[in-house]
């Protein structure tokens, strides 16, 4: 037969256990809240990083476009400075990885043989590539000959542009 004293002791033990259980639950709540806050914080950080990286890539693409344009400009000048450029230069990379600002630029040239015996009226394809960090921008122009004697102009119709 359980005495009053024994019952009081059991009740006290039970209440003590409840106290620890409640405290544990509170800690769990607290830890969960902390975890939630941490996850939200880390997500915000991650989002911010992605957003920054995305914006940076956008900016770099914009910068690379000007580098690609610079490559074309320098290619056109090569033609201007050397009246015998058709014999001096051939298809291929006219210059590669030239430094400019935060990146580089390159120029690839293809002489498009039109099949006739006159090499002076062949069209010329310029591909200017600008690189800034992870961004690359390519601009393509075609120079067409208006004359069998070799006068070249940039074709309005043949140009294509790609970014990557």
């Amino acid at each position: 037969m359980e005495t009053t004293r024994q019952r009081e002791v059991r009740t006290a033990t039970s209440l003590k256990a409840n106290k620890f259980r409640r405290r544990a639950v509170a800690y769990i709540y607290f830890l969960s809240a902390t975890l939630l806050v941490s996850v939200i914080g880390l997500s915000a950080l991650m989002y911010s990083r992605i957003q920054r990286r995305s914006a940076q890539d956008g900016n770099n693409a914009l910068v690379a476009r000007f580098y690609a344009q610079s490559a074309l400009e320098l290619g056109l000048t090569q033609i201007n400075l050397d009246p015998d450029w058709r014999t001096t230069f051939s298809s291929g990379t006219w210059f590669a990885d030239m430094p400019l600002g935060r990146g580089t630029f390159s120029l690839d040239v293809s002489i498009l043989n039109d099949g006739d015996a006159n090499p002076n009226n062949n069209s010329v394809l310029f591909v200017g590539t600008g690189v800034c960090d992870q961004s690359t921008h390519k601009i393509e122009i075609t120079l067409v000959s208006l004359s069998d004697r070799g006068g070249l102009v940039i074709s309005n119709g043949g140009g294509k542009r790609s970014t990557g």
Partner: peptide
């Protein structure tokens, strides 16, 4: 931002040869 600008392609102009032949050179 940086870029190069050059004189580019030589400007063409009408060039006349005998007999009225014209070529852009």
């Amino acid at each position: 931002l940086e870029a190069f600008k050059t004189i580019g392609l030589p400007p063409l102009e009408a060039c006349c040869f005998s007999g009225g032949l014209c070529e852009n050179l």
